[in-house]
Amino acid sequence: MADYVYRTVMHDIKQNILNNQYEGMRLPDERSLAEHYQVSRSSMKRALELLAQQGIVFKKRGSGTFINPLYLRNQAMFRYDGSNLGITDSFKVPGKTQRIKLLDFHVIKATKEIAEDLFLSENDFVYEFKRLRLLDEQPFLIETGYLPIKIMPELKPETLQKSLFNYLEDEQSKTVTKAFLNITVEPSNEEDQEEMHLKPNGPVGVMEGIFFLDDGTPFELSNMRVHYHYMNFNSFVNLGK
């Protein structure tokens, strides 16, 4: 699939930052960058907004756009490469191959709790799916998700074996930009131990939450159980808008 122009520009700017191409830790102005990359101002603005959302750059009113020095010191904290909040991009590790194994996929009538969380009626139906994620064939995460059929009426099993959020952006021009997450730790259950090769009662991180599209529509209700070796949570907090 063709990459969006703003994403290509964003990736190039990030590489230039790592190669120390910008003097004084400051990026050229938006107009100059747009002319340099031969893209529209709106595409350039989108690329810079994504870099700012990721915490890689920050805007100082009246002075310009500057590189966050923390990005150069600890890139692992800023390794997310997409405009979505998907796990596929969030868990990218240099030199390691990520794979998704679909464990279960079917349609169910929304329960009262699911309907409330996804702003559905109790007569609506949702996809229920379970996926196992692996890094270099090491299982590290079990994900159970619920997705309204009306958002993706033709969802196929093969789509769930790749990044669902990136598919949504590439095929439907929609992005998942917000999430409410609750993060806890608890002893592993039998399924965790079997699928992620954990010892009895070995700990797992549990992330439960709701992901939202950029227009505010609830997109997915998700429960993710993470192998404790991979439960390393970093957060960039933006107290702006």
Rank of each mutant, 00 (worst) to 15 (best):
M152V: 15
P153R: 05
P153E: 00
P153M: 02
P153W: 03
P153F: 01
L155Q: 01
K156L: 10
K156D: 08
K156R: 14
P157A: 05
P157K: 05
P157D: 05
E158G: 03
E158F: 15
E158L: 11
T159L: 12
T159I: 14
L160P: 05
Q161P: 02
K162A: 14
K162I: 09
K162M: 09
S163M: 00
S163F: 11
S163H: 03
L164I: 10
L164Y: 10
L164W: 11
F165Q: 11
F165T: 07
N166M: 13
Y167G: 01
Y167A: 12
Y167K: 05
E169L: 14
E169C: 05
E169D: 10
D170F: 06
D170K: 14
E171S: 15
Q172G: 01
Q172H: 09
T175R: 09
V176E: 01
T177W: 00
K178M: 12
K178C: 03
A179Q: 07
A179N: 10
F180Q: 15
F180I: 12
N182S: 12
N182P: 03
I183K: 06
I183P: 01
I183T: 08
I183W: 02
I183N: 10
E186Y: 02
E186N: 11
P187S: 08
E190Y: 04
E191H: 02
E191C: 00
E191Y: 07
E191P: 01
E191L: 09
D192Q: 02
D192K: 00
Q193M: 10
Q193A: 13
E194Y: 02
E194H: 03
E195G: 00
E195W: 12
E195C: 08
E195K: 15
M196R: 01
M196Q: 01
L198T: 07
P200W: 12
P200Y: 03
N201M: 09
N201D: 15
P203M: 07
G205F: 06
G205L: 13
V206D: 01
V206M: 11
V206S: 07
M207C: 11
E208N: 13
G209S: 10
I210Q: 05
I210S: 03
I210D: 04
F211N: 14
F211R: 12
F211M: 14
F212C: 01
L213H: 03
D215C: 05
G216W: 06
G216D: 10
T217Y: 10
P218L: 13
F219H: 09
F219S: 05
F219N: 08
F219Y: 15
E220M: 15
E220W: 00
E220V: 14
S222I: 15
S222E: 12
S222R: 04
S222H: 07
N223W: 13
R225H: 09
R225F: 06
V226F: 08
V226A: 02
H227E: 01
H227N: 13
H229T: 07
H229K: 12
H229L: 05
H229Q: 13
M231S: 08
M231Y: 12
M231C: 10
N232K: 11
F233Y: 12
F233C: 06
F233M: 13
N234A: 07
N234T: 10
N234L: 06
N238L: 10
